[in-house]
Design a protein around this nucleic acid. Structure first.
Lengths: 218, 218
DNA sequence: GATTGTTCTGACCGATCGGTCAATAATGTT
DNA sequence: AACATTATTGACCGATCGGTCAGAACAATC
């Protein structure tokens, strides 16, 4: 097997795997782990069911792979902040980044939500391990900001949860939001408006003076 | 059939139905409509599977009944506000009421969340009908508050979504929250702290002066 | 062109799915 | 006591579940 053919074959395999992963993400995100069937995933991917298992091994392996893929997309968020960072800038970016991530990977976000709703059977140790440490370290920095008088003395954990929930809402509850707004999908204008609203309320609510002007989200 | 025996029979039937509804709420809330099985519900209720169908007719009828039951619990919220109401008091109550409802009916809340995640197949017309009108009318009143200078000129729809998402988060993402906090469940102290945080940030963020002092949630 | 390894898939497996039904038991009603 | 109604449930139905497997189809190497 030459390097060329190896690349070709791997490329072909990758393409098929991406097709399957994408189809599976849609089905799992709508119906959760138990509610999703391999047949539905196969239909979505326009492949025979046996083909799904040939590439992914088992339903569980496919699901775990999707969860990991979604996790890896979150890694960069809030990674490089310090006690010297500007809270307004950081929280502003945080809100926008989370909002963009949700709009970019709606199925992945819903998949994650469904997993948590089910009691996080596959993510328990991640939540109480990696993610717990992540929150604790970010919270420590936010607390320093408060002590420096840069912002009000609010519980940083509740602040992080607030931003998570407020931004995730528009992807995970998109069916509710669009139903209430009477639109089929959120427009760019909506998204910009939402971002500005969240920045206004959260920054002002935390006693942070706005430093940077609002800019378009997309 | 005398009035007495009628009451007795109805009481017995009601008791069994409540047992089934409660069991079904747990199973549906964890696994969604498709992921839940009548056998799992029967096991949870400690009844034969055929008994579930005898009382509820079908899986779908049982599910719809649960959805309606959950909806009816929401009716009183924000019902009697006017342009003359005090925004601080109203929003404060709104936050607390939603928080209490979520803690009181965690399974029902998760059930609702799972339904929305799946694209709201059974609630589409409710969302774009009743609920849409509800939001529109509340939004109109909030807009009047802004015009009267009682609060900042924020989009009332985003404000309503913000309060929904921020409060629901603690019931629907309880697996994530408790995992991160390292607790098995949210304590009363946590809940009080969260309520005070949300009131502080949202009211201040909307430019509303706090009128009433914070009081214990439970 | 024969050989080898990978990809692909229809056919099939036992288990479980939602739902039906007949038989039995319990409970009124007269 | 006789009868009618309701409650209960094991057995069963066709369909679908996740997963296996043998073999056909395909591709690369010699």
């Amino acid at each position: 097997m030459t390097a060329d053919t190896a690349n070709q074959e791997n490329a072909s395999r990758d393409r098929i795997e991406q097709t399957i992963l994408s189809a599976a993400e849609q089905v799992f995100s709508q119906h959760g782990y138990r509610g999703a069937s391999l047949q539905a995933i196969a239909d979505q991917a326009k492949l025979p069911k046996a083909n799904i298992l040939y590439y992914m091994g088992s339903k569980q392996a496919l699901y775990v792979r999707l969860l990991n893929r979604m996790m890896s997309r979150w890694n960069a968020v809030l990674e490089d902040i310090t006690a010297e960072s500007d809270p307004g800038q950081v929280l502003s970016d945080f809100i926008r980044t989370k909002m963009v991530l949700g709009q970019r990977y709606p199925e992945g976000s819903k998949l994650f939500a469904a997993e948590i709703l089910a009691g996080a059977p596959f993510l328990k140790e991640y939540l109480s391990g990696e993610l717990k440490e992540w929150v604790a370290s970010r919270a420590a920095i936010i607390r320093q900001w408060s002590q420096q008088g840069k912002m009000d003395d609010v519980d940083p954990r509740w602040l992080i949860f607030l931003i998570w929930s407020a931004t995730q809402h528009y992807t995970e509850y998109s069916a509710q939001v669009t139903g209430i707004l009477g639109e089929t999908a959120l427009s760019d204008a909506d998204l910009t408006s939402i971002c500005e609203f969240l920045e206004h309320v959260i920054l002002k609510g935390c006693g942070i003076a706005r430093t940077a002007p609002a800019h378009a989200i997309l």
